[in-house]
Design a protein around this nucleic acid. Structure first.
Lengths: 162, 162
DNA sequence: CCCTATAGTGGGTTAACACCTATTAATCCG
DNA sequence: CGGATTAATAGGTGTTAACCCACTATAGGG
């Protein structure tokens, strides 16, 4: 018997076609989608979306940005970023200050509350990751991370998403 | 210098936040999304969608199904499957025959043309995969495939998608 | 000082996708 | 037989994410 494991509880047990399962890209798409979806769910419980986390991460990692530069870095529409920044500012997670040198620009920086929030969100993300990568041990996860990082590095910059 | 590689041509070079790049789930999501998008583009040039390919693959791998069973296997809405089957039948890629035993059921089977089409689509998928996995050599790709397959096997059957 | 370009913002439009509903036809079971 | 159930299908709804346009305010060059 090739698949002797009992169906893991509450599972339709739908075997997918080998033609698809043989495609790493299919698996990547499916797994990535699942992970993304689960994290999005958790963020939604806090009234947040994935872009909120991406923006917080960019600010925490690279310091204050003009919105223009955030747009450039994250590949998000300027108009949409304005909305994200609005919401984050309303929650006190980021501060927006007019750039004194160029008063068109609005410099966005993360607050302490924002950093704390990001830490929590990162925790949620890691919890999801633990669920998703459950079948792999620590060493295998590291191998996977290494491979994915290299693959990611090779992607040319088309459509992005958080 | 930690990132000495020249930006790979025509690239905004947007460095993503390490906070995100450290998450395998982020990379999975991003890479999977890219791969999916690129394949979807190619299929669209033929007037096809991902579900068309999934349905063809299921029929080719497992033989004829009642639509009911395809729905079960692929996690697709019955109503949507009807439309997919319609289109595939119009192109001559599948045949629909009333089940003589239970005349409510419509049995769908792949035709030779359908098999030929699937072979082409699989070729497209592998071409995309070659693009996406370009940074990895053959052995690394196999390691990746193995890890992904195990991760996939551990996913409980929530939302699916092709 | 005009004239053009840029930064941010508000308020839409669009496209894709999952999902739901009603209808028709056939089956099953008491 | 008759009522309840299931299969397929047509058509429509809701959500989401990406995107686009118009407007304001500022900058900067001639």
């Amino acid at each position: 018997m090739t698949s002797s494991l009992p169906t893991p509880a509450g599972h339709p047990a739908r075997d997918m076609p080998p033609t698809l399962l043989d495609l790493s890209t299919y698996l990547l798409s499916r797994i990535g989608r699942t992970a993304r979806g689960r994290l999005a769910e958790r963020l939604a419980e806090r009234g947040l979306r994935l872009w909120d986390m991406a923006v917080l991460a960019a600010l925490a990692d690279f310091g204050p940005h003009a919105q223009r530069d955030l747009v450039e870095r994250l590949g998000l529409d300027p108009s949409d970023l304005a909305k994200v920044a609005d919401q984050l500012a309303a929650g006190g997670y980021v501060e927006r200050t007019r750039d004194t040198a160029d008063r068109r620009r609005v410099s966005v920086s993360v607050t302490d509350a924002g950093r704390a929030l990001l830490a929590e969100l990162d925790g949620e993300a890691r919890a999801v990751q633990d669920e998703v990568l459950a079948p792999l041990d620590a060493q295998e996860r590291q191998v996977l991370q290494g491979l994915l990082l290299r693959v990611h590095g090779g992607l040319s910059g088309g459509r992005v998403g958080p």
